[in-house]
Nucleic acid binder design. Sequence first.
DNA 1: CTTGGCACTCTATTACATTGAGTGCTATCC
DNA 2: GGATAGCACTCAATGTAATAGAGTGCCAAG
Lengths: 354, 354
Amino acid sequence: MTELGERAETLLKALIELYIIEGQPVGSRTLARHADLNLSPATVRNVMSDLEELGLIQAPHTSAGRIPTQLGYRFFVDSLLTIKPLNVEAVESIQSRLSTESDPKMILAGASEMLSKVTHFAGLILIPGQENARFRQIEFLSLSDVRVLTILITDDGRVQNRVIPTDREYSEAELTQAANYFNEVYNGSSLAQVRRALLGEMKTDSDKMHNIMKTAVTMAGKFFDEEEREKDDVVLSGEENLLNIPDLCQIDTLQKLFDAFKTKQDLLDLLDRSMRVNGISIFIGEESGYRALDDVSVVAAPYETDGSVVGTVGVIGPTRMDYEEVIPVVDVTARLLSGALSGRELSDGSRKPR
Amino acid sequence: MTELGERAETLLKALIELYIIEGQPVGSRTLARHADLNLSPATVRNVMSDLEELGLIQAPHTSAGRIPTQLGYRFFVDSLLTIKPLNVEAVESIQSRLSTESDPKMILAGASEMLSKVTHFAGLILIPGQENARFRQIEFLSLSDVRVLTILITDDGRVQNRVIPTDREYSEAELTQAANYFNEVYNGSSLAQVRRALLGEMKTDSDKMHNIMKTAVTMAGKFFDEEEREKDDVVLSGEENLLNIPDLCQIDTLQKLFDAFKTKQDLLDLLDRSMRVNGISIFIGEESGYRALDDVSVVAAPYETDGSVVGTVGVIGPTRMDYEEVIPVVDVTARLLSGALSGRELSDGSRKPR
DNA sequence: CTTGGCACTCTATTACATTGAGTGCTATCC
DNA sequence: GGATAGCACTCAATGTAATAGAGTGCCAAG
């Protein structure tokens, strides 16, 4: 990118900050008065003209002020941000919320909720996939003739259950034995390992297997059948906050957005991408590549348990959001969450956005 | 209420049906042409004037047609409805959706989803409370030093789990014994019975109790602690459909509504009320008494398992909804749901992925 | 390079006239 | 006496024109 020059950068920064606050196109006079450069509106106009040529700002119509383009926001978050000092109260309320919960699922949901509460946008979180969790216990319970309730418990305290239709009736004893067998063999393995092992078992000629083994493999095989990240791995909160954002007042924009909130697939993809990136991800408007998210921005930060990244928390709000405030909030929430999950304290280095 | 006279009723009915279709105030000329009474607009005007005096219709302003009032809708659904024949396709798709699911929770969610899909409004369901379910099994698993994962399984195939913070560390053996004790004592009792028994136990002087018993009671006591109908007992679907209803285009109306969708408390109360009533409940606009629902109507029908009412399914949509179509859809869905939950037919064993 | 001046553009607002749908009232008809 | 045609009236919606104001682009002077 062409070098901008310090003055132009200062003005661009001031313009974006003003626009974020007011939501109105910023004119040369306002900008001149607000930036501390002691320039006349005419000079400012010249600079603005340059900035427009570079595609960083644009005018809605001839005789209006300028508003940032997507590119302008991008340049802003990449190079111009001055991260605001954190609101201590907000941090404390997040911290206290995360530390009072004991159920891990609740902690995760709490992080998303607190983000929505603090930013007044929507909070979202990609919860840790099961693959890395360790197998702890499985249980098969006969419900009626041909349905078996399967319960899987992992050592992170999550419980997953599913009703599995079977081709024949199984006795209680059979199921108990099968579960015992399974629990013994796979105790302590990661779910990924269990799945791999199961796939192997199922290819083996089943005649050679012990009956109990066969039952166990059949049941669990159906349970582990399809497993990938799914819908439930993304938890949203505070979606209703987005309804009174003036920038998102168009019904069809909201409709698209809420449709995406229902499916969650796009969100899942996006958060998954951001998990693989080091540090905070920011997707501005159409950058994310999903139609439904064209008119919003997403700020997301990965969080860890025991030193490895397992998921992402973030905020989804209007493109005209206060990045200087939202980014540190998301950042610190991710850290607090990591702390709450690992049971450790918050370290206090600061992280740079990508 | 004053007797209306057949002609007035016919006209009111025609007016409401027209208004439901068009969404525009209905004038005397239109109404005269549409109703098969062969009356002149002037005559119709006289009748409309009467109807207005009775509070059944109103004019948005002097020179506009008339629209039904809340009272008008009420009279309409009480006395004037001609239920439309059911859309066979819709019924079949509902039926097939309900019968392919095997997990009871999925069946319930499916009913709500199908209602939203068929009516293009939001579907909602009050799922059966736990109180009547029978206790099947409880399990205590130690997570870390002072947290115990408690899993409760009822014989309707539902699994509930909660992480319980404890005051001291419990060994695996202790917890297993406690669970065994509990399972033996309460096997087959209803959850209501279990709760009552627990309350009694906790009042007993704990010194006299066996250690194992004490552990069991402590754990389970915390689990059963707060239990009433909660948030999760109401399942919503298709909320996003309400975003493109022209009648609900006001942002603050939607905001109120989605706030209520988040809390769910009002919905829960409403559905609970409708459960205690025989037959279909219809709440038109402000009738429900909840501010958030002032601008919408709710149509709900109770459903049963094994002959007794356990919950309610319904639809929430604009007050100007096609009651003649929605009512039978809700009705038949409730019936199909009752059927799917009780008279469990043999499913064809095909398992729907994901 | 900066700045003041100036003509120009475009939106938003206001005022005013016009149109058309629909009403209420009354006199008339069967 | 109920139904109807006729008519004056009301009111939202639409269109037109004028005006004010914010802001721009450009040029010439500092």
